[in-house]
């Protein structure tokens, strides 16, 4: 167990380093984009004086290095800063109340996590079950049908899947609401119903990957001597797969699940737009559009953090799924 603890600490350290690198890359990338916040917000009415004054207000006239290190110093103290848009708005209205990036992101992030959670709760069990059944009835009609279905759903664009589901589940058979306008103070069940359509769309997107990995990882083991032994003990095919193959196939499956969960947190902007779901993805894209660097930075840190933590979790679970490491000699 000591070794597991050491791995966790080591990986968290490396994760922090990754976050730092990510923040540098994002800062450079956003600044390399043509135009800046002042130009984006003023649009047609941009006069050199107006641009200059907004830049001065937001500190955009400072050199890159000092801007980055100011931001970094703030972030390390837990202050993600203020969004340019909010700061600009505040200075326009003269109000002193600034909405910080953290306060802006928090409810969105919560929504994103809720959507990811609902999707995972549906997609993970479904893909595992389908994968196990496909391995059990490999090369049968069931196996092929499952493969064709999941592959076609992963190959179609997400918005297309979303509109198909809206057509069948909201328009032709009005079972679910087609708009997922979540707001604070909603009851959990209502929230769940509203989230269901985007969650189903995302399930269709992530199932193929997980299901096929489950199937492949299990089939990969079927030639091993201990599986032959289990068969020669006269066990039922289902038992051979679930009790003897699956526990040894967990590591690759866990890793694929983690990657897909990370995708659910970071990559679902298209689905959010279709269902008008107030997640973090939309906020991120909007902020990039107006070069709102503090928000972009914060979102990127969250995305990178999600990948790092989920991968760490996957590694730890893979280690724990190996009896050699759980029970050393």
């Amino acid at each position: 167990m000591d070794s597991v603890l050491r791995i966790i600490i080591q990986r968290l350290g490396l994760g922090a380093l990754t976050l730092l690198v990510v923040s540098i890359v994002i800062f450079i990338a956003v600044n390399l984009l043509p135009g800046d916040f002042a130009q984006a917000i003023l649009g047609q009415g941009a006069t050199p004086e107006a641009i200059e004054s907004i830049r001065r207000d937001l500190g955009l006239d400072q050199p890159y290095l000092s801007r980055y290190f100011n931001w970094l110093a703030g972030t390390l103290q837990g202050d993600l800063g203020t969004s340019f848009a909010q700061a600009n708005f505040a200075s326009f209205t003269g109000s002193q109340e600034l909405t910080t990036v953290a306060a802006q992101i928090a409810p969105r992030f919560e929504n994103t996590m809720f959507l990811a959670g609902v999707t995972a709760a549906i997609a993970v069990p479904v893909s595992l079950t389908l994968g196990i059944l496909a391995a059990l009835y490999r090369n049968s009609v069931f196996d092929r049908a499952t493969n064709i279905f999941t592959l076609s759903s992963i190959s179609s664009p997400e918005f297309f899947l979303a509109y198909i589901l809206i057509l069948f589940l909201a328009v032709l058979n009005p079972l679910l609401p087609s708009l997922s306008n979540i707001f604070e103070g909603m009851s959990l069940s209502e929230r769940f119903i509203k989230t269901l359509l985007p969650a189903l769309t995302l399930t269709l997107v992530v199932t193929a990957h997980m299901m096929r990995m489950t199937r492949a990882a299990i089939i990969n083991l079927l030639a091993s001597p201990y599986i032959e032994m289990a068969r020669l003990k006269g066990l039922s095919p289902m038992r051979v797969i679930v009790v003897h193959a699956l526990p040894n196939a967990l590591a690759p499956i866990i890793n694929v699940i983690a990657l897909n969960l990370a995708y659910l947190i970071t990559g679902v902007v298209v689905v959010e737009v279709v269902f008008v779901y107030p997640g973090i993805g939309q906020l991120f894209v909007d902020s990039v559009k107006i070069r709102d660097i503090p928000v972009v930075q914060a979102c990127c840190l969250i995305f990178a953090g999600a990948y790092i933590l989920l991968n760490l979790l996957a590694d730890i679970l893979s280690i724990l799924s190996n009896p050699r490491l759980r029970h050393p000699k």
Partner: peptide
Amino acid sequence: RHLLGKRIAYVAQSAAASFNPA
């Protein structure tokens, strides 16, 4: 299947590979 394991059993060459590690 009802005979295997019950009335006919098998001992493999490499016990290390034929016991399920899990």
